[in-house]
Design a protein around this nucleic acid. Structure first.
Lengths: 245, 245
DNA sequence: CGGTCACTTGATCGTCTTCAATACCAGTGG
DNA sequence: CCACTGGTATTGAAGACGATCAAGTGACCG
């Protein structure tokens, strides 16, 4: 695949359930479908790895040997056209699962935008494991179904929304990201660059920048620093995101 | 949900395996994961229905009571913005499965573009059935994973491709549709209207029409009748679709 | 300092949209 | 047979939104 600047995580071997047992991400992840007593087997299959920001740890059209389960940080998933045009199809953070595809090659690339830690499962071995844990398979199906819904929402955004509506949708989405998925935050970080935002929304960095400054001048948001946003008028932003004026 | 102009399909009760046993679509569908002797149970849960072209049989944000499995015809799946802007997220034909989402409401609407026949499964009962047929669940996961890959491809199209590239991608895709998924056809039907194509590609009908006539004048395609296309220069079309020149 | 990198801001340009007119076809009824 | 209608597709002209090109700012760093 790729040369990773990765370092395997050292785990205390005395721990009863192995690394997966006390994994920070477990409660978010598909792994929570597996009962404690079986975590040892899961841990035996997983290789925990950490990569630096900017490191590409999945490359489109390379043989898909592994599934990945993000346990820390955020990665961008993207596809490229031969001339370099890029579409970011999503941002994967804690709990996200990558590499579900049936195909034997990856359908997208993944690059860390912050230091990322993930569990890597060889596909063949995970497949066997899934036979023993139908609950985990069920969970995977749920996850895939949810991603499908999100993908359709993104198609609506890319195909039919204006630049302002896209940006508003993005901010509304980001405010719900992370711990606070139920209670959206008014102030929150944007870990990705303007260029990433642009490639996610099907725009250019200039349009992203201009739209943000216009939102600010309209009193919709504040930009305390480049990588942070405060929402001042959520109602207006949400209705913009929904396509109303 | 919606008032369907539907008529239940009469099935010969003497058939050992019920309607599902000799279903035309079985070989394409998720149902082929189920062994013959269990088809009776599957058939007991399914309601076969046929709707006319133009009939909307799934409506976005309505309670999601059923799963659907298309066994004949083609439907368009779409999302709407309040002001009527529409994004078609896909065309579902024989073998496609609709309504996977975890949410208790549908995330999209579905409308038949030709007469459509489908099997309807109450979600609650199918869920129980899946517990007994892990093979079918596995198959669903495969299907979902494939759709996810297709969705990402479509995001690339919507976010980054030009009108010409979108149209070329669409024609290349359609030529692979249906029976001939391995051997693409040079002449094939376009069962959907220009308006549907436009809403699928994030364009307007005018741009779709103009692009098609330009392809024709460039000798890439022929348009024997409005709803049919012949590819004259597949190489050029495919490379356009891929984003090269 | 000079360098790079990410972002912002301005001016111009082009692709696709919008608006509008026309063509086409099937169905209906005089 | 022809006029009338409604829906769909094509074609042309004008306009707009976002892209492109270009310059400038600020932060960080060797």
């Amino acid at each position: 695949m790729i040369t990773l600047q990765s370092r395997p995580i050292v785990v205390d071997p005395r721990s009863g359930v192995g690394p997966c047992g006390h994994c920070d991400a477990r409660s978010y992840s598909v792994c929570n479908a597996i009962p404690d007593e079986d975590m040892v087997r899961l841990a035996g299959v997983a290789v925990v790895t950490e990569v630096a920001a900017g490191s590409t740890f999945i490359e489109e059209s390379e043989p898909a040997h592994s599934f990945f389960n993000i346990t820390r940080g955020t990665a961008k998933l993207f596809k490229l056209l031969p001339d370099g045009r890029r579409q970011i199809t999503g941002f994967a953070s804690v709990g996200h699962f990558l590499g579900l595809a049936v195909s034997d090659t990856y359908a997208f690339s993944a690059e860390a935008i912050e230091p990322v830690r993930f569990c890597r499962f060889p596909r063949a071995r995970l497949r066997l494991l899934l036979d023993d844990f139908p609950a985990m398979e069920k969970r995977l199906l749920e996850v895939a179904a949810n991603e499908l819904v999100a993908a359709q929402e993104q198609m609506l955004l890319l195909g039919r929304k204006t630049a302002r509506e896209r940006m508003a949708s993005f901010l509304a989405m980001q405010s719900r990201q992370g711990v606070s998925c139920r209670h959206p935050r008014t102030r929150f970080p944007l870990p990705m660059t303007r260029s990433d935002i642009a490639d996610y929304l099907g725009l250019t960095i200039e349009t992203v920048s201009r739209t943000l400054t216009r939102f600010r001048s309209e009193g919709l948001i504040e930009i305390p620093c480049q990588s942070e946003v405060t929402i001042l008028n959520r109602r207006a932003l949400e209705s913009l995101a929904g396509g109303l004026a």
